[in-house]
Computed example of a mutant assay.
Amino acid sequence: MTQLGVIGGGGWLGKALLLPALADGVIAEEAVTVSSRSGAVPGFEPWPRVRQTKSNTALAADADVVMLSVRPQDLDAIALDLSGKLVISVMAMVSLADLADRFNARRIIRAMPNAAAERRLSFTPWLASPDATDADCAFAERLFQASGKAQRIATEAELDYFTGLTGSGPAFLAAFADAMICDAVTKGIERGIAERAVRQLFLGGSSLLFESGQTPAEIVQTFLDYAGTTASGLKAMAAADIRTPIARGLAAAAARAAAGPGDRDLG
């Protein structure tokens, strides 16, 4: 039985990945150990045989697979020899080479889930080091599929880009929603009403986008062809060059991901 240890498993992302994996039987509860500063965190009550500890050393000693789910700036405090183990990192900005050097590891998988993992709606791109086995990759795929959609990719440059595109994406959508809410308020609409309206808009719009057989570009063109109020709004946004600030934001996020945790100036 594969033994999984999750360093930082008490944090929101660690739990967001673990809870659906436990519920789906991807990993047995008695095969899971999570570490946290407190040594005991809520959320695992349905799985009482999940072990909790403050000791990363003890966790690693019992694990075949060690998942790193901590803030990149906290990584220096973790000194472990993980040689012979599969290391799964869900941290941004920490490369395969850095992980290999820090932990004496060769079988490594890097992944970039997003905040929607806790609702099983994450898109999680992942890549494997050359020494990761087929069994390693199959385990990672099952683990990430439990929290949404998983996609294996080929390069760290792609993962850096996806760190912004989908890893940061929920926050970018929230920024767009906030801009719409603020505009509604300037037009005299009560903020609470504007927020409820925009939340429902994003819920409905995202569902339609997900379920539609059309590409996003085709959906836009459909509304342009209809030549109504939506077309007027889309044309005004295009005239204001809406794509450039979006591209700049994605580029900045990707550059920060590639820079590594030691460079704070790009944040």
Rank of each mutant, 00 (worst) to 15 (best):
S38I: 10
S38T: 07
V41Y: 09
V41C: 06
V41M: 12
P42E: 05
P42R: 04
G43R: 07
G43L: 12
G43F: 10
F44G: 00
E45K: 07
E45L: 11
R49C: 02
Q52G: 00
Q52N: 01
Q52K: 04
T53W: 11
K54M: 11
K54C: 07
N56K: 05
N56H: 04
N56Y: 07
L59V: 06
L59F: 10
A60N: 11
A60V: 13
A61N: 10
A63D: 05
D64G: 09
D64N: 15
D64R: 14
V66K: 12
M67F: 10
L68V: 09
R71H: 14
R71L: 15
Q73C: 11
D74V: 15
L75F: 14
D76N: 15
A77N: 11
I78H: 12
A79T: 15
L82R: 08
L82V: 09
S83Q: 14
L86Q: 08
L86M: 14
I88E: 07
I88G: 02
M93A: 15
V94I: 08
S95I: 07
L96A: 03
A97N: 05
D98A: 13
L99K: 00
L99T: 01
L99P: 00
A100T: 03
A100R: 11
R102N: 01
F103I: 07
N104Q: 08
R107I: 06
I108A: 02
M112A: 00
M112N: 00
P113V: 02
P113L: 05
N114S: 00
A115P: 01
A116M: 15
A117R: 09
A117W: 14
A117G: 02
E118G: 08
R119A: 06
R120D: 06
L121T: 02
L121F: 12
S122L: 10
S122H: 09
F123L: 14
F123K: 01
P125F: 07
L127Y: 09
A128S: 08
A128K: 08
S129E: 09
D131L: 14
A132S: 12
A132F: 13
D134L: 15
C137S: 07
F139A: 02
F139C: 05
L143S: 03
L143G: 01
Q145T: 08
S147D: 06
G148Q: 07
A150Y: 04
Q151E: 15
R152P: 00
A154S: 10
T155K: 01
E156F: 13
